[in-house]
Design a protein around this nucleic acid. Structure first.
Length: 484
RNA sequence: UCCUUCUUAGCUCAGCUGGUUAGAGCACGUGACUGUUAAUCACGGGGUCCCUGGUUCGAGCCCAGGAGAAGGAGCCA
């Protein structure tokens, strides 16, 4: 009974804005964005980026209440929804009662009714979600996460929870954060002076996961199609706009898939989730689109982008991604005028070296002007588990490169042949005995399979048009950054 | 970790060749106005010029070291 009254007593602003003017009184609750002219409250409750205009009659409402309607204050307003008597909105709420739920000292509240820099808002990440920009970003982030689960669920994938704490650092995907419950001031040592992990919580050295892939492969060998979607940790000292120490990653792993099937799935997934956001976050994306256009006006003509955010997203969902091999990419780059005029900082000379980000950007942003899937990289620059091609030089790897983001997906067809895998592990000094459980999949019912990792924040970057990855995760973790 | 740039009011920034009491817009406070759209108008308060040391008669400005931030590079998702 109680919850019924609660539902009746408060309507979310997203819903109110869709209602027709009516006699019945409504109650809304939210936070004050601005209070103009001692009578117009722009009220936001987070359900939508749009504010509801609450009109307070300053002749009828107590002056002590009016004084407390400040930017950031939480209020409850009750009154009739009427056709707006001013321009700028279709309906407004004429408040008969206004209750202050939580005061906000205007002199101390950092958010002002004005434009703030993203750098400043990053410093107050606990409050920045109350702004239009971050409200839009995090509602989009939510729908992207939801649509990823929906995509895989509809296809019959099993959502597998791979461990956060692992004992293997075998993949070599990066520096790890150590996990221990040792007293750091008094770490037990063995007779030979080494750290005595036998006495640690797990009885061995452990760290936070850098990837759920190896465990994902075990699941694929049971369920056929699985995916993970969880946090990942890398202790790299990376200070860039596209790296985090804690980030979320989606890692599907499919039995009986070859590399082409893998690329098909990745492309379908990306197009699906972008379309989903375009449909379900229409207003938020339009807001960010306008924001970016305003920002572009500050730039000189030649630095402005050819497509706006919405055009870029639609272009991505409506066109097939370009698929090329690493070797073809090298040839394109080698023959490019850019290379001949020596405009690359790193000139393209030999086959076999990894592409620099300037090369990837050239391919995606200048040459093809669309997402590019590069496959069949030299084996010496890729991981041990990737399937070796018959040429003896390349592996069945794939990277998906996005404009402005770079590598958004990295994946491969996995080496399913035990002997080939063991040989490669020996060459790359990967301890096979520690990974006996991984190799067991090749011993018992091995089969062709493939998978990839999709960086969730990089996807959110692309869809929101933001440029710094620290602005698309609520509370970013990066070197020297662990506030909140 | 490397390279470049930056750090002045709550925020965004200006500050001349090193020269007296460091400025603007916005925000905030007070008052006026009352159908506003980041309301408007008037008045007002507000400074560890990032820190430490040095050069100088004199440093926000020059020099050295340090801290933090932004962008780029590497590592990668």
């Amino acid at each position: 009974m109680c919850s019924y009254i609660l539902i009746m007593s408060r309507v979310k602003i997203k819903e109110v804005l869709g209602l027709a003017p009516q006699e019945k009184e409504l109650t809304v609750k939210g936070w004050v964005r601005t209070f103009r002219n001692n009578q117009f409250i722009a009220l936001n409750d987070g359900s939508t980026n749009n504010n509801l205009q609450v009109v307070a009659d300053f002749n009828k409402i107590d002056e002590t209440i009016l004084k407390r309607i400040t930017t950031g204050a939480a209020i409850s307003a009750t009154g009739k929804l009427i056709e707006s008597q001013g321009k700028g909105q279709s309906v407004e709420l004429t408040a008969t009662t206004i209750e202050i739920l939580g005061d906000s000292d205007a002199e101390k509240y950092p958010l002002q009714p004005k434009k703030h820099s993203l750098e400043f808002l990053r410093e107050i990440a606990h409050l920045r979600m109350r702004t239009n920009t971050f409200g839009a970003v995090f509602r989009i982030r939510h729908n992207l996460a939801y649509s990823i689960h929906k995509f895989f669920n509809d296809k019959g994938f099993v959502y597998l929870h791979t461990p956060i704490i692992t004992a293997s650092d075998a993949e070599g995907a990066g520096e790890t954060f150590k996990v221990t419950n040792f007293d750091l001031k008094n770490i037990p040592k063995t007779d030979s002076g080494e750290i005595d992990f036998k006495n640690d919580f797990f009885g061995r050295a452990t760290n936070l996961t850098v990837s759920g892939q190896l465990e994902g492969e075990l699941g694929a060998m049971a369920f056929g199609d699985v995916y993970t979607f969880g946090p990942t940790f890398r202790a790299e000292n990376s200070n860039t706009t596209r790296h985090l120490a804690e980030f979320w990653m989606i890692e599907p792993e499919m039995a009986f898939y070859n590399l082409n099937d893998n690329a098909d799935l990745a492309e379908e997934l990306l197009q699906y989730v972008i379309s989903y956001a375009l449909e379900h976050n229409k207003e938020d994306i339009e807001f960010l689109n306008t924001r970016l256009l305003d920002e572009e006006k500050q730039k000189p003509q030649n630095e402005r982008s050819e497509m706006n955010l919405i055009e870029k997203l639609k272009f991505c969902t409506d066109n097939k991604f370009e698929r090329r091999t690493y070797t073809e990419a090298i040839n394109i780059l080698k023959d490019s005028n850019h290379n001949k005029k020596k405009k690359f900082q790193y000139l393209i000379n030999d086959w076999g070296t990894d592409l620099q980000s300037e090369h990837e950007r050239y391919l995606v942003e200048k040459h093809f002007k669309k997402p590019v899937i590069l496959t069949d990289y030299p084996k010496q620059i890729k991981s041990f588990y990737m399937r070796q091609n018959d040429d003896g030089k390349t592996v069945r790897a794939m990277d998906i490169l996005f404009p402005g983001i770079g590598e958004i997906v990295g994946g491969s067809q996995r080496e399913e042949r035990l002997e080939k895998l063991e040989t490669r592990m020996k060459e790359m000094n990967i301890p096979a005995d520690e990974l006996y459980w991984y190799l067991d999949t090749r011993r018992f019912g091995t089969c062709e399979h493939a998978g990839f990792g999709l960086g969730f924040e990089r996807l959110v970057l692309f869809v929101t048009g933001m440029t710094n990855i620290r602005d698309v995760i609520p509370f970013p973790r990066a070197p020297k950054t662990c506030e909140f």
